[in-house]
Design a binder for these strands. Structure first.
Lengths: 207, 182
DNA sequence: AGGTTACTTTCAAAAGC
DNA sequence: GCTTTAAAAAGTAACCT
C-alpha cells in the first residue's frame, strides 16, 4: 500500500512538473510574440484540456504548447501565422500544424478559417497607419470578399494589398516592401493581389 | 456532365521471386538504386511514362500511369526488360490498384469560406494560409477531394474510377443542397 | 517587372529505420 | 513518423535576367 502511495506521488510530481514546464514555455512564447493576457489564458485553458484528454501522448509538450497558442490566437480573433508561431518555438511549422489539426479535432474546437480582416489592425499598427486607413482597408476587404477575390488566397497577402492600397488613398503611403515585411509575404504577392483588387474592384490609384 | 480525368494510378504487384537490385541497376538504363536513401530501385520507362519501384522481395509499385490499361502495359514492359537483362519472371503478376488520382471541374466558382463554415463539421479542412484548396474527406467512397475556388477539384485515394464519379457527384449534390452552387 | 522552377496539400504501396 | 514515386489543383516563394 505504501508503494501505491509512492507511485501516486511520483506520477503527481511528474504531472505537475510537466504542467509547470508547459506553462512556463507558454509564457515564454507569448512574451516573445507580444500576446495579450487573454490569449495566454485561452491558450493555457486549451493546453489543460489537451492534457486532460491525454492528447500529449506521442507528442512533445512544446508542440502542444505551440499549437495551443496558435489556436488561442485564432479563437481570440487575433491570428498569428504558423510561421510566426514556429518562429518563437523550437518546434517546426509542419508539426505545429499537425498538432493543431489533431487538437481541434479531438477538443472539438470549431475555429473559423482566418480572414484578411483579422490581420488589418495588427499590420496597420505595426506600420503606424491611422484608423482611417484601417477603415478603408476594411471596406476594400468587404468588397473583395463579396466579389470572390479571397477564396484560396493567403489572408495575409490579401490584407497586405488592401492596406497598401488604402495607405496610398489616404495619403499615408507605405512601400510594398514595408507592408510585405510586416505581413510576412513577398512584394510579388502584394503586387499580384494589388493588381487583382484594383482591377476587379475598379479602384483607381494615381501614382 | 462529370468530366473526370485520371491523372495518376498507383498499383502494386509481386514478381514472386527475390531480385538482385544491384545487378538490375547495372543492367538496365533508367534504373536508379540508392539503398542508403531508399530500399527500392527506381526504374523509369518512357512509354507509358511511368516510374516503377522494385524491391528485393520481388514486390513492385508502379506509379505515373494515366489509365488502368497503362498500368498493365507498363508492368509488362518492366517484366520484359528484366528478362532481357537476364532475370526471368516465372509468374503472371497479379496487379492491385492502390490509388487513383483524378481531376474534375464543377465549372463554377465556389466560395470556400462559406463551404467550410456550412459543411465544416468533421469532414472539411480549409486553411488558405497553408494551401489554397479545401480538403474534403468522404467516408463513402473513402476518398479525399481537394476543392478549389475555381471549382476545379482533385480526387485521390480512389481504388476504382467509379469511386471518383461517385465522390464528385456526392459533393456536387451537397453543395447544391446547401445552395453553395447552382 | 517577368519568367521559370519549385514547394505547399491529398493518397497508397513497398522495406526499413 | 521518415525515406521514394507520380500527378493534378492554385497560391506563394525563390532565383535569374
Amino acid at each position: 500500500r505504501l508503494r501505491k502511495w509512492q507511485r501516486r506521488i511520483r506520477v503527481s510530481n511528474a504531472t505537475e512538473r510537466n504542467l509547470a514546464f508547459a506553462l512556463s514555455e507558454l509564457d515564454r512564447m507569448a512574451s516573445a510574440m507580444g500576446l495579450p493576457r487573454n490569449v495566454r489564458e485561452t491558450a493555457a485553458m486549451i493546453y489543460r484540456k489537451a492534457v486532460n484528454k491525454n492528447l500529449i501522448r506521442g507528442r512533445s509538450i512544446e508542440g502542444v504548447v505551440a499549437a495551443s497558442l496558435y489556436a488561442a490566437c485564432r479563437q481570440c480573433g487575433v491570428p498569428r501565422t504558423l510561421d510566426e508561431v514556429a518562429g518563437s518555438s523550437r518546434v517546426g511549422r509542419k508539426e505545429i500544424g499537425r498538432t493543431y489539426r489533431f487538437m481541434t479535432r479531438e477538443l472539438k474546437l470549431k475555429l473559423m478559417p482566418t480572414k484578411p480582416q483579422d490581420y488589418v489592425q495588427r499590420f496597420c499598427s505595426e506600420l503606424k497607419l491611422s484608423g482611417e486607413v484601417q477603415s478603408k482597408a476594411a471596406e476594400i476587404l468587404k468588397d473583395a470578399s463579396e466579389k470572390e477575390l479571397t477564396s484560396g488566397r493567403g489572408p495575409t497577402g490579401v490584407a497586405a494589398a488592401a492596406i497598401y492600397i488604402s495607405s496610398i488613398i489616404c495619403n499615408e503611403r507605405r512601400t510594398q516592401r514595408e507592408v510585405a515585411d510586416v505581413a510576412g509575404v513577398t512584394e510579388v504577392t502584394i503586387r499580384n493581389r494589388y493588381k487583382e483588387l484594383t482591377e476587379k474592384l475598379g479602384i483607381d490609384i494615381v501614382l | 456532365m462529370a468530366k473526370m480525368n485520371i491523372e495518376n494510378v498507383v498499383a502494386s504487384t509481386s514478381l514472386g521471386q527475390e531480385l538482385d537490385l544491384k545487378a538490375i541497376e547495372n543492367a538496365l538504363e533508367g534504373a536508379d538504386y540508392n539503398p542508403q536513401q531508399f530500399p527500392g530501385l527506381v526504374y523509369r520507362i518512357k512509354e507509358p511514362k511511368t516510374a516503377t519501384l522494385l524491391f528485393r522481395s520481388g514486390k513492385v509499385v508502379c506509379t505515373g500511369a494515366k489509365s488502368l490499361g497503362d498500368v498493365k502495359i507498363a508492368i509488362s514492359k518492366v517484366a520484359k526488360d528484366l528478362e532481357k537483362a537476364n532475370i526471368k519472371i516465372s509468374i503472371e503478376p497479379k496487379i492491385e490498384v492502390q490509388n487513383i488520382v483524378a481531376s474534375s471541374d464543377l465549372e463554377q466558382e465556389i466560395n470556400l469560406n462559406t463551404v467550410a463554415i456550412t459543411l465544416g463539421l468533421e469532414k472539411v479542412e480549409y486553411e488558405p494560409e497553408q494551401f489554397p484548396g479545401l480538403v474534403y474527406r468522404l467516408d463513402e467512397p473513402k476518398v479525399v477531394v481537394l476543392l478549389f475556388g475555381s471549382g476545379k477539384m482533385v480526387c485521390t485515394g480512389a481504388k476504382v474510377p467509379e469511386d471518383v464519379v461517385r465522390a464528385v457527384d456526392k459533393i456536387a449534390a451537397e453543395l447544391r443542397a446547401a445552395s453553395l452552387m447552382s
